[in-house]
């Protein structure tokens, strides 16, 4: 079940909001405190990448973030609506492709370095990054 769903206009200033929301929900879900920095960074990278893809592709629809709390695990899905064109085909208006590709790859490198369980998929309707972390159930309150 999706605990929290967030949609934001593809603007860099909203990425911070997505990070804060994701970290807050992850904390509540029982993701270890030591891992919250990684959650914050990974979701920020995924959202920055999605914002870049929307802006480069002149896509007006929002970026979607779904935070899913499940038994023993917490997942974050960041979805974009940038269609992936066939190799060799350039999206119109996509200037400075090399720089953008490099930044895109650096973002993915950070995500895969940080998160053990990550799936990246992309198709003609857009892409999705799904990241999952284990959660620990809240410890029983000790009886004094």
């Amino acid at each position: 079940m999706a605990t929290v769903e967030l949609r934001f206009s593809a603007l860099p200033e909203h990425v911070r909001t997505a990070r804060l929301v994701a970290a807050a929900v992850a904390r509540r879900a029982g993701v270890d405190e030591a891992v919250l920095d990684e959650v914050r960074l990974a979701v920020g990278e995924a959202c920055s990448r999605a914002v870049g893809l929307h802006q480069n592709g002149r896509i007006n629809s929002p970026v979607k973030v779904v935070l899913i709390e499940e038994e023993k695990q917490f997942s974050i899905e960041v979805g974009d609506e940038a269609p992936r064109s066939a190799p060799g085909e350039r999206a119109p208006g996509a200037a400075a492709d090399d720089v953008e590709t490099e930044e895109d790859e650096m973002g993915l490198a950070v995500i895969s370095g940080l998160v053990d369980d990550v799936e990246v998929s992309a198709g003609e309707h857009g892409g999705l990054i799904r990241m999952t972390w284990p959660t620990t159930p809240p410890a029983a309150t000790p009886v004094v």
């Binding site: 960074l41 650096m106 973002g107």
Partner: peptide, 9 residues
């Protein structure tokens, strides 16, 4: 407090 890949770039 926070640095991401854009900052690294």
């Amino acid at each position: 407090d926070f640095l991401d890949s854009t900052g690294l770039g």
